[in-house]
Simulated assay, not measured.
Amino acid sequence: MTQSVDQALQAFAESHPALPLAVAYSGGADSSTLLHACAQRWPGQVHAIHVHHGLQAAADGFAAHCRSTCAALQVPLVVAQVDARPAAGDSPEEAARRHRYAALTQQALQGFERPMATVVLAQHADDQVETLLLALSRGAGLPGLAAMPRHLQRGGLDWCRPLLQVAGADVRSWLVERGLPWVEDPSNTDARYTRNRIRHQLLPVLEQVFPQFRDTFARSSQHAAQAQRLLVAQAQGDLQAVGVPPQIKAVQALAPERQAQLLRQWLLQSHGATPSAAQLRELLRQISHCSTRGHRIHIKVGYGFVVRQGSRLAWYNP
């Protein structure tokens, strides 16, 4: 069920998040709500990280707003500047996401006087629906349909999304009711981005036709996430059996479906790389034909390449 901001933060507090925590703070409405709400609930335990992507002329203004707001709240802030330009053939959105999470991880662990235990992200229920619809539009499998988890552990940190059951309009209303400022990212209205077209054109129609779509879509994502956890558990067992990095002959001995799941798990777990469906098909094809000592495997996966090194697979980022 969708919640108000206060209900969501109360539920988050009752889960006893590890402190201190850092808010991923862009200066926009969503992260502003999360920052103010967390600072009120855990005074002295809240920090903020602003990732300066350097991709927009307005980026310096965003950082200045974040510094001013955090100074007024007496919340320690670090501004992490990253070069988020995509490499050749890389998705701009994926490159920005990868650099953002790398910066958040580094700053949460090293950017303050003491390491953070938790990083909180401000995605809300509308973001979750958009993520699911984007996954459906791309023909995604279970990982995509599972959308965004409310909680995960990665890189020595807890990552939490306390507002994931709050409608986007309610997040902004919380700020308006309190007269709190935020900055608007000009790219949020750029119709060249599919996510923006979903937000501004499709969600209002869904609201009319299926008023409970946030709740029902979230349930579908939860079912997909549950099934994905079972597959991951099996893949981790297979990965232990074939070794890390994987022995090619041991991979070939598995059924094709288990090969695919194992390779996804290895690439994500060891290298943070996610193959497209076409890349995975080609990798499986090359592995199936690898029957001689001189057979070569070389295929782009994510932002790097899978290659053969002796009897094993390897991945490298050139």
Rank of each mutant, 00 (worst) to 15 (best):
T2E: 10
Q7F: 07
Q10I: 06
F12R: 01
E14W: 01
P17D: 02
P20S: 12
P20A: 06
P20Y: 03
A22L: 07
G27E: 08
G28E: 00
A29K: 11
A29P: 05
S31K: 01
A37Q: 01
A39K: 00
Q40I: 03
R41P: 11
V46C: 04
V46E: 10
H47V: 06
A48S: 09
I49K: 00
V51K: 02
H52L: 15
H52F: 12
A57F: 11
A57C: 05
A58S: 15
A59Y: 02
A59N: 06
F62A: 03
S68M: 10
T69E: 14
P76R: 14
L77Y: 01
V78E: 08
V79M: 02
Q81P: 06
D83N: 13
D83V: 03
P86N: 12
A87F: 08
D90R: 15
D90C: 15
S91A: 12
A95L: 05
A96P: 02
A96G: 05
R97I: 08
R98F: 03
H99N: 12
Y101M: 07
A103W: 00
Q110W: 08
Q110K: 14
Q110F: 14
R114H: 12
R114G: 11
P115E: 05
T118K: 13
V119M: 03
A122H: 04
H124P: 04
A125L: 09
D126Q: 14
V129C: 15
T131G: 02
L133A: 11
L134S: 12
S137F: 09
A140P: 02
P143K: 10
P143Y: 07
G144W: 05
G144D: 00
A146Q: 01
M148A: 07
M148V: 11
P149K: 12
R150V: 07
L152W: 13
L152T: 13
Q153H: 11
G155C: 10
D158N: 12
L164A: 07
A167M: 10
R172N: 03
W174F: 03
L175E: 06
G179A: 06
L180E: 05
P181W: 08
D185C: 09
D185R: 15
Y193S: 03
R195V: 07
N196K: 08
N196E: 05
N196L: 00
I198G: 03
I198M: 10
L202Y: 06
L206K: 13
E207N: 14
F210Y: 14
F210R: 13
R214V: 05
R219P: 00
R219Q: 14
R219T: 10
S221E: 09
H223M: 10
A227P: 08
L231N: 13
L239M: 14
Q240N: 13
V244D: 10
Q247E: 15
A250S: 11
V251K: 03
A253M: 13
L254W: 04
A255N: 08
R258T: 01
A260D: 11
L263T: 04
R264Y: 03
Q269I: 01
S270D: 15
S270E: 15
T274E: 00
S276A: 02
A278G: 04
I287S: 02
S288F: 03
H289T: 08
C290F: 05
S291G: 02
R296C: 00
H298V: 06
I299S: 00
G302F: 06
Y303D: 10
R308P: 05
G310N: 08
G310T: 04
R312Y: 07
